[in-house]
Design a protein around this nucleic acid. Structure first.
Lengths: 130, 130
DNA sequence: CGGTATCCTTTCGGATACTG
DNA sequence: CAGTATCCGAAAGGATACCG
C-alpha cells in the first residue's frame, strides 16, 4: 500500500504538471505551425513565398496559422514599404527556441516510425484473422 | 544568390524530413494520448481507473484513444479472468520511449508558457488600442 | 465492467469571391 | 500582394442508450 501511495503521488504530480502544459501545447500544436516555423527558420519570407513552399496549404489556413503564431509571439509581421504592398514574416527567438524540443520529437518519429507501422500491420492482420 | 541556394537546400531538406515525420506524429498526437501514457507510466490500470484519473474525458474518447494506442503498439490490452470482466491496459517499451521526447516538450512549455501568455496579452492590448 | 452504436451539435478545412 | 468574408461538406466531440 505504501508503494501504491508513492506511485499515486508521482502520477498525480505528472498529471498536475500536464494541466499547466496542455494549454501551451494547444496554442502551438496545429497542422501547420511547425511547417511554417521550419520554412521561416533559415530566413524571413513573405506570405505567398511561404504558401509556395508548403504544398497543399490553403490561403485561409495559412492566414489563420500566421495570425495565431503572431499572437503567440512566435513570428513577427512586418509591412514592407513597397508597391504593391508586401508583408514579411520572421521567426522570433521564442519561436526559434521551440525547434530544439520539436527536433527531439522528430528524431523519435524517425527512429520509431517503422515500429509503429509494424505494430499497425500486425494488429490489422490479427484482427483480419478473427 | 549562392546564399539563397544554400538556404533553400537546408530548408528543403527540413521540409522533406517533415514529410516522413508528419504521418507518425499524426498517429500519436491527439488530445488524450499523452495524458493516458502519463497515467499508465507508473503501472497498468483498468478502463474506469484511467477514466477517473483523467478528469473530463468521455467514455467514447477514452475508448477511441485506447484503441488507437493499442493499434500503434504503445499500450497492451489484457482481459482479466475476473467476474465481472476486467480489462487492464499497460504501457509498452515503445510507449515508454515516447516519454523522453515528450518531456522535452513539457519542459519547453513550462519554461516558455509565461512568455506566450505575455505575448498574447501584449498583442491583445495593442489591437484593443486601435 | 468494458465496449459499441447512435444521434446531434460544433468545429474545421477547402473553395470561391471580393477589398485595399 | 495580402487579407477578409462567406458558404458548405466533412470530421470531431459529447451525450445517451444499449449489448456482452
Amino acid at each position: 500500500m505504501a508503494d501504491d501511495t508513492d506511485l499515486d503521488a508521482l502520477s498525480e504530480c505528472a498529471l498536475a504538471e500536464m494541466a499547466r502544459v496542455r494549454p501551451v501545447l494547444d496554442k502551438i500544436a496545429d497542422k501547420w505551425t511547425i511547417l511554417i516555423l521550419t520554412v521561416l527558420c533559415p530566413r524571413p519570407a513573405r506570405f505567398n513565398a511561404i504558401m509556395r513552399r508548403l504544398d497543399g496549404i490553403t490561403h485561409k489556413a495559412l492566414a489563420d496559422a500566421l495570425k495565431r503564431l503572431e499572437r503567440n509571439g512566435l513570428v513577427t509581421r512586418t509591412v514592407l514599404p513597397t508597391a504593391p504592398i508586401g508583408v514579411e514574416y520572421a521567426i522570433t527567438p521564442l519561436g526559434h527556441s521551440l525547434r530544439q524540443p520539436f527536433e527531439a520529437l522528430c528524431t523519435w518519429a524517425l527512429d520509431h516510425g517503422a515500429a509503429i507501422e509494424a505494430a499497425n500491420h500486425e494488429h490489422d492482420s490479427i484482427k483480419a484473422r478473427q
